[in-house]
Structure formats: structure tokens, C-alpha cells
Simulated assay, not measured.
Amino acid sequence: MNKRAKQLVLACSLPVLILLGMCFTPVYTMLTGEEMILQTKPLDPSDLFRGDYVALQYEAEEVPIKLVDKAVVTRLQNQGQFDVFVLMEKKNGVHTPIKVTLEKPDKGIFLKGTINYIDKDNNGQKIAFIGYNLDNYYLEDNTGTEWEKASAKGEILAKLKVNNGYAVLTDISTK
């Protein structure tokens, strides 16, 4: 093989290797991750042009300030958005946050998320708003309306696979 042919093979294989590398973490998580169930909150999606999907918002995205480490609060005031680790505990079949920290937990199941801001909820309690990038689930055709109604009532449970804080949304079900 001459030099030009080797360059062509290298140039063609590099994008393929990059795409395969991007698939590794989600596939590895699906195969080896622990299962987690999250409770959703009512949400009414507004984009009708994406096909059948349901927009999800989770109770675990609004964490009471008492569960957030002081170092996280201080850093948020000085820096703005950044990644945190949310240690979860299973209660009544659903995983809920028990601690938000800067350090990756040594044991237990946890999610890696982005803390956005701290504000008060409808009851006047201070809470931290954390995003997990698990907000849309695409559905089988002609089933979106049923799931939208269930989502608006907060009746959907989301099933995830989690590995080392990285989560993949695998399924949804109603209570």
C-alpha cells in the first residue's frame, strides 16, 4: 500500500473511530449499570413538531437545601453552574436524593448532574435545581397523548440505568 492510500484509510477511519467512541459510554452503561427509578413531576410539553414524545421533569431535580453540602452552595454563589454528584437512596420503590456533593461518592448509587441555581419553591422552602439531561423520552407512534396526560398528573415513573453517575433513560411506566 502506498503512502497516499494509507493517508486515505487513516482519514476515513478517524471519523468512524470518533463515532464509535461516542457510543461507548451509553452502551457500557446499558450493559453494566445499576437500575434506578425516578418519580416525575407534572409537566406539559409545548413542542408539537418532534413526533410522539413525552417531556419529563423529576422530583429529584428539586433538592431541599438541607441536603446540599455547604461547599456546593458557596461555589454556586461564586461560580455559577457546575457538575455535582447526587447520592440517591431507594424509598418506596423510587430513588430520591439524600446528599448533593462536589466529591464523587465512594459507595452507593448516584447521579452526576448540573446544579443550576438555588431558589424557593411554591411553599417558600429553599431548594437547589439540578439538571440530569434526561428530559425527553420518545414514544411509539400515536401514544403521545396518553403519556402527556399521565405526565401532567405526575403519574410517570422513569427507569434508568446508571453507571458511575452517568445515566441512560431506558423506559417509562405509569404508577
Rank of each mutant, 00 (worst) to 15 (best):
D171I: 14
A150I: 05
K149D: 11
E103A: 08
A60K: 06
E61D: 09
D171A: 15
V84Y: 07
D121C: 07
I130R: 06
F110H: 06
N2F: 09
V100T: 10
L48P: 05
L20I: 08
A71G: 10
K6R: 08
F85T: 11
Q81R: 14
C12K: 13
N136D: 11
Q81A: 15
P64A: 01
C12Y: 14
I118M: 14
K41V: 15
I37F: 06
R50C: 05
N136I: 11
A128R: 04
I127L: 02
V100M: 10
L17Q: 07
T101P: 13
Q81F: 13
K107L: 04
K107D: 00
V100R: 10
L48R: 14
G154H: 06
I98V: 11
D44P: 01
T145S: 00
F129L: 07
R50A: 06
G165E: 11
K6H: 09
I37V: 09
A150S: 06
L48D: 03
N78T: 00
P26C: 04
N2E: 09
L8S: 12
T101I: 10
K159C: 08
N122V: 13
M30C: 02
Y166T: 07
N92Q: 04
L87P: 01
E148P: 02
K6A: 05
L157K: 02
A152K: 04
V63K: 12
E103C: 01
A55Q: 14
D171L: 13
G165C: 14
L48F: 07
L43I: 13
Y58I: 11
V162I: 13
L111A: 02
E89R: 14
G108C: 06
I172M: 10
G33S: 03
K161D: 02
I115Q: 09
Y132E: 03
M22H: 14
I98D: 03
T40M: 12
E146H: 01
G144Q: 00
L67Y: 10
K153H: 03
K90P: 07
V73D: 15
Q39R: 01
V9N: 02
Q57K: 15
G51K: 00
V162D: 12
L17I: 10
C23L: 09
T96K: 09
K153V: 08
Y28K: 02
K112F: 05
G144S: 02
L56S: 12
E61T: 14
Y28L: 01
L76S: 06
E140C: 03
E146Y: 05
G80V: 12
G131L: 11
V162G: 09
Y58R: 03
K126H: 08
S13N: 01
H95P: 06
L160C: 13
D44N: 02
K153A: 11
G144W: 00
N122R: 15
A11D: 04
G124Q: 14
K120W: 05
R4N: 15
T96C: 00
N123A: 01
V63M: 08
T101Q: 15
D135Y: 05
L10S: 00
I65S: 09
S13P: 03
G21V: 07
D47K: 13
A5M: 09
Q57G: 15
A60W: 02
F110E: 00
V162Y: 11
E146P: 00
A128E: 00
V100H: 05
Y166F: 14
N133F: 08
K107I: 06
N164I: 07
V162W: 10
L139Q: 00
D121S: 07
K112C: 10
V9Q: 03
M88C: 05
Q7L: 11
Y138G: 05
I18M: 06
N116E: 12
G108R: 03
I109N: 12
P97M: 03
